[in-house]
Simulated scan of single mutants.
Amino acid sequence: MYLTVRDATKTYGTFTALDRVSIEIEKGEFVCLLGPSGCGKTTLLRLIAGLTELDGGEITLEEVALSDLPARKRGFGIVFQSYSLFPNMSVAENIGYGLKIRNVPSSEIAARVTELLELVKLPQVANKLPGQLSGGQQQRIALARAIAVDPRVLLLDEPLSALDAKVRATLRDEIRQVQRSLEIPTLMVTHDQEEALALADKIICMNHGIVVQAGTPEDLYHRPATRFVAEFMGSSNLLSAEDVAKFYPDLLATRPASTETYLACIRPEQIELIPAEDGTATVRSMSFLGNLQRLEVDSPTGPLLVETHGRPCCCTGDKVHLSIASQDCTWVLDDADQPKAIPA
């Protein structure tokens, strides 16, 4: 494994920001640390970067311990939410700064800056100051500066959260293209589920200072292990085992054999809705969202969210049957009271 964190612990007084967290990143892998504010993801990124000291555990890069190595010697590139460009330097000077302090010849710096400006699609702004650029352009320059020195790992701390939605989506795609073309191992902090699903090879979902689940975007969306992950990774319908036994008994076949409390998780798009005069559910409301319809349905198990593509097949107030295939049901641990770490 390329970068490994084992049992990382960080406390601030009586508050435990990280509680024995372990993660792994392979060469060329794009990993997202995902979770709500205060879950420990930025603390973990800062520990890896060397900007914060470990209280326990270890961090290794290619089997070499990093704990005693200062941030400037780790060879990592870092991009922050706030751009952090030097306002009195031109774009070209900002990008080449890391190379200049490493005493790289001027001709090589100029060639590298030109190459990176082409890579981030801003060849025309080399002589401008950061204040003359838009937020999206500044973040592209911050990315170019971070990768100018060929970092061993690229660390991104919510780099898109200060941008508007359209710019964020465009820059998100460009970051992924750049990362793939250069094959830089990348760790990105985000609280945006859509961002993580679109970018990551692997998502590490955190809550209350622990890793609650790690896996591919498909794993976390279609096979969440806990109630927290199911609810955090998009919309979900959660049904008790009692309700499932009464109204959807076919789903019980996949329920884990355990004394712990599990809930049936069904995504809105996994519910088939069939208009029927004798239907047991009623459409309460409908929302048009462009490529899909989102319906709130009153059912015998309580309110359910259903999403359908194409033209609506029913109207508000219509009676409907609801059908759920057993393979579309995932049973999740009810961790509402206390998050639990799930093995990767």
Rank of each mutant, 00 (worst) to 15 (best):
E272K: 12
K319C: 13
G302L: 09
L45C: 11
S90L: 01
M286F: 04
A257W: 03
E29A: 03
S285V: 05
C315W: 11
P249R: 11
K121F: 13
V283K: 00
C32D: 13
E58I: 03
L47K: 03
A264G: 10
V113G: 00
A162N: 13
L47V: 11
V91E: 10
I141L: 00
A165H: 04
L99F: 05
K73G: 04
S235W: 02
P151K: 04
P249N: 11
D19G: 07
L66T: 11
V178T: 12
D278G: 03
A200R: 14
G35P: 07
I204P: 00
K128H: 07
T52P: 01
P339W: 12
L122Y: 15
G57T: 09
A281M: 11
I175D: 01
A276P: 11
G279A: 06
E231I: 05
L171E: 04
S240F: 10
A225W: 08
S67P: 00
V189E: 02
T60V: 12
T261K: 12
T216D: 11
G57V: 03
I141A: 00
L305E: 07
L133S: 03
T301G: 14
I342R: 04
E58A: 14
A162T: 12
V64E: 05
M89D: 04
Y83T: 09
S106L: 08
L251T: 12
K340S: 05
P249A: 10
A111F: 09
V211F: 06
S287M: 11
L304P: 09
Q293T: 06
G57D: 03
I109H: 01
D7Y: 05
A281W: 10
V332F: 11
I271F: 10
A148D: 13
S299K: 11
G317W: 00
E195M: 05
L160G: 01
D243W: 13
L187P: 02
Q293A: 03
I342E: 06
V64M: 02
I324C: 07
L263P: 02
L51A: 15
A148V: 10
K73M: 12
F232G: 05
I147S: 00
R6Q: 15
L252A: 14
K319F: 08
E58H: 06
V297P: 06
R112K: 14
S258Q: 10
Y12N: 02
I203W: 03
F288W: 13
L99W: 01
H222S: 14
V113T: 14
V297C: 07
G279P: 09
K319W: 06
G40Q: 10
E108N: 11
T114Q: 13
N291A: 07
A214N: 06
V283P: 04
K128S: 03
P159H: 01
T282F: 05
C39S: 15
M188I: 13
V167T: 15
A196N: 11
M233C: 15
